[in-house]
Amino acid sequence: MDHSAVLAAYDRQIRQNLEPDGPGVLIERVDGVVRRVAAAHDWNGVLWSGLEESTADESIAAQVRHFTSLGLSFEWKTYTHDLPADLPERLLAAGFTAEPSEALMVADVQELPLDIAPPEGIRLLPVTDADGVRRMTEVHEQAFGTDGTDLGRQLLDQLTTAPDSVAAVVAMAGDVPVSSARIEFRPGTDFAGLWGGGTVAEWRGRGIYRSLIAHRARIAAERGVRHLQVDASDDSRPILLRLGFTELATTTPYVYEAPPARAA
């Protein structure tokens, strides 16, 4: 893999020129940034920025004004190669809060192992309806310790209005959901994104996560996707490296919380 070329393609296709990818989603290019504006339960934030040192602070302030005027909290997703070099410090000074950094990892679909079966006693169940979404959010809340309500609403929106844009799966141990994950497709690009891979604590270390990577890679291969992309945590990064993913950059989300709405 030509790391520089793939990273440049990712920036160009996914961060700078992404088309609206969900119901009611707007992709706006203004003030030196590309931003995604959607419903409050969806992801809102800055996908890409090309800021000059002399105007960066005003551009940051403009994004804060825009999203808060809509009553939306939002995320500014930075990468290690973004400019200006002190962008993270500027975001912190503007009132953003940094969340844990992740590794931007990419693999060529044709070079990934596609034949990894789930461990004995585990079956993979496609998520296609509200019951499947409920199982998926149940796993998410247990695996990550966070509220899965917004994720569930976002996924149900996708399945209802744009089912070809996402494929989700839950790993079942009997009737109990123990792991889940999804793949999101970006038509017209070389990339599909792997998201939400999580396993409840007592089922970790048994190969379920690896089987969910292979399951989604098979779907990507069937659709002719060239590259899979993951924002990998410290826990998943070693597994992905062993499977053939390459680390291209570090990405850090900076979150700005909208002030609570005033009572009428």
Rank of each mutant, 00 (worst) to 15 (best):
M1N: 10
D2I: 15
H3L: 14
S4N: 14
A5T: 07
L7S: 08
A9L: 12
D11S: 15
R12S: 15
Q13P: 07
P20K: 01
G24T: 00
V25S: 01
I27T: 03
V34K: 08
R35V: 02
R35E: 02
A39C: 08
A40P: 02
A40R: 02
H41R: 00
H41P: 04
H41Q: 00
D42N: 06
N44R: 05
V46F: 11
L47V: 04
E52A: 15
D57G: 03
I60A: 02
A62S: 07
H66E: 15
F67N: 02
F67Q: 00
L72I: 04
S73L: 01
F74Y: 13
E75T: 15
W76N: 05
W76I: 07
T80S: 15
L83Q: 15
P84K: 00
E89I: 03
E89C: 03
R90L: 12
R90P: 00
G95T: 05
A98M: 05
P100F: 12
E102H: 14
D108P: 11
V109M: 05
Q110F: 11
P113S: 02
I116H: 01
P118R: 11
G121Y: 02
R123Y: 10
T128Y: 05
T128C: 07
D129Y: 07
D129K: 05
V133Y: 14
R134I: 08
M136D: 13
M136P: 09
V139I: 13
V139H: 03
E141H: 11
F144T: 13
F144H: 09
F144Q: 06
G145N: 05
T146D: 06
T149L: 11
L151K: 01
Q154L: 10
L155R: 00
D157K: 00
Q158E: 10
T160I: 08
A162M: 12
A162W: 04
P163I: 01
S165E: 09
V166Y: 00
V170D: 01
V170W: 01
G174N: 04
G174C: 04
V176G: 14
S180N: 14
I183L: 07
F185C: 03
T189S: 08
T189Q: 10
A192P: 09
A192T: 09
W195C: 05
T199G: 14
I208G: 12
I208K: 12
S211E: 08
I213N: 11
I213S: 06
I213R: 11
A214V: 00
A214Y: 00
R216T: 08
I219R: 11
A221G: 09
E222Q: 11
V230T: 08
V230L: 10
D231K: 07
D234W: 07
L241H: 12
F245K: 10
F245H: 12
E247I: 12
L248W: 09
A249S: 13
A249W: 13
A249I: 07
T252W: 15
T252V: 06
P253N: 13
P253H: 07
V255K: 04
V255I: 15
Y256P: 11
E257P: 07
A258K: 00
A258Q: 09
A263G: 15
A264S: 09
